[in-house]
Design a protein around this nucleic acid. Structure first.
Lengths: 111, 111
DNA sequence: CGGGATCCTCGTTGATACTG
DNA sequence: CAGTATCAACGAGGATCCCG
């Protein structure tokens, strides 16, 4: 069971935690999953309590990790569209399971 | 699709993020899932780079959220055993999916 | 053995102003 | 519109010592 050993150099759980345990990544991914292609401002409207800085930097990180696509149109005013990559989409069923789990057990947890 | 609206008061994604986006919770849960019942020191050995403070406080939080059981034996020296609750176990398939996803795509992500 | 109590650091996050 | 730049603050996390 070495692949799950927390000490194993590429421990997948630590990889997931390193990338997903920030405040906004999962929320952005799941928002994109619901709405498909979204512009910067649409994301900001869907998640009003995120700052521009955190939205920008989180999107940049997700793009660097190839979880989202960034398509920029050289227009004025500029238009940028974000969407999930295949890799990003493949993560969503797992996120969906956590959401379902939360829906089923959250009352019990907080009670 | 209001149940997934990030603004919805009990937005399940935010609930998950609030509880699981720290540095150690998922790793502890998944370690307990692999090994079953574990004592404090066994957990600390399985995850050597966690500090005592963070191990204690994370275990306490997980217990308060009813994701793990804490069984204390009034002996000297004391013995305390931790294990997943049913609710905690029900979360593990979702974690397992994220692990599988990481195993399949991590190379691609970091390339 | 299984923690608790302190003190401290450093990274994440936020607010605000500015720009191509 | 879609960001960047800068500064400030807060709190998660770590190191160390102590205790029943």
């Amino acid at each position: 069971m070495q692949r799950l050993d927390p000490l194993y150099p590429t421990c997948p759980i630590r990889n997931v935690i390193d990338r997903m345990s920030d405040k906004w990544s999962l929320l952005i991914l799941s928002t994109l999953n619901q709405n498909g292609i979204m512009r910067y401002k649409e994301l900001n409207s869907a998640i009003p309590d995120i700052s521009q800085k955190m939205l920008s930097s989180t999107l940049k990180r997700l793009e660097a990790d190839k979880l989202i696509n960034r398509k920029m149109y050289p227009e004025i005013p500029p238009r940028v569209e974000y969407s999930l990559t295949n890799t990003g989409q493949k993560l969503m069923p797992a996120v969906g399971m956590m959401v379902d789990w939360a829906l089923e057990y959250f009352d019990e947890i907080t009670k």
